[in-house]
Amino acid sequence: MATLRELSRMPEVLVPGHRMCAGCGAPIVVRQVLRAAHAPVVVANATGCLEVSTTIYPFTSWQSPWIHTAFESAAASLSGVEAAYRSLKRQGKISQDIKFVAFGGDGGTYDIGLQSLSGALERGHKMVYVCYDNGAYMNTGIQRSSATPKGAETTTSPVGKVQPGKRGSRKDLTKIVAAHNIPYAAQVSPAHWNDLYAKAEKAFAADGPAFLNAIAPCPRGWRYDSSDTIELCRLAVDTCFWPLYEVENGKIRVTYKPKEKKPLVEFLKRQGRFNHLLRPGNEGLLEELQQEVDRQWEDLLAQSES
C-alpha cells in the first residue's frame, strides 16, 4: 500500500487554476485516480463541470493530452483514440506505453453517455472510465439525472405540494457496467483515498475496459458547507448509501465494511437537498429510503466474496 508521502512525489496531471467551485469533489477524484496510472495518460472528458472548468480557453489545467468532443461521446471518442494508438503502435509509429482514461459526470455517464459507454465496454477498449457522480446535472444548474437519489430536491425535481423531490430510485450504474463482463469495475470514494488508489491501480492495469464510479459531492447542488465534502463522502460510505466494492473478473468483493452502519439520515440531514424529508409528514419516505439502502447493502453482502 502506497503512503501519501510516496503519492505526493508523483506528478500531478490536473494542475491548479481550474475553475471548479470551492470544495468540489470531482477534482479530488481526478487527482487521486490519475496518481495510479504509472504511465503517460490521454484524458477524455464528457461535457460537464470538469470539462468546462478545467479548459477555459486559452487556459488548460491538464498536463497530459486531453480531448473533449461532446456530452455523450467521451467513451466513443476515447475508443477512437485508443484504436489509433493500437494502429499506430502496430505500425511502429508510436513506441511509448500510454494509458487511456475518460472522466464523465453522472449526466454524461448514467444518462446521455450510457450507450456510447456500453459500446466501448463491449468492444473491449483498454481504457479506464471514471464517473464522478454528483447525482444531478450540476453544470446546467442542478437538474435531476438518473443518478439523483430518490427524494432529492433538484431544479427539475422540486419539492412541491404534491411532489416530495425526485420520484423513483437512482440507477445502479456500477452493476450495469459490471454486467458487461469487463475485467474490472468498482465503486470508490475520495474519502477512502487508499481504497480508491488501490482500485485505480487495478483499473489501469486491467487487460481491457475498467470502470470506477466515484462519489463526488457538489456543495452547491447538495447544499452544504464546502468544507464538508470529504465528510459527506465518508457518511455516504458509512451509511452504506455508497458502498465501496469491486467486481473483478466477475467476482464481487466489498472492500470496506463500516464497523457500525450509520442510519441513512446521518448522510441526508447534512444536505439541503433533503431538508424536506426531515419535516413532519415525510417519515414514511425516509423509512422507505432507509429500507432501500438496507436491502441493497444486504444483497451486496450476500453476493460478495468475503
Partner: peptide, 28 residues
C-alpha cells in the same frame, strides 16, 4: 489493411470515434 476497425454501436459513436482517432494523428 493496417486499419483498426471500430465496430461502434451507433453513427453518433462512429463520428465520435473517428474524431478521436483523427485527433490522435491517425488517418480516420
Amino acid at each position: 489493411v493496417k486499419t483498426e476497425f471500430v465496430t461502434v454501436e451507433s453513427e453518433h459513436s462512429a463520428m465520435s470515434a473517428t474524431i478521436g482517432a483523427a485527433a490522435s494523428g491517425a488517418r480516420a
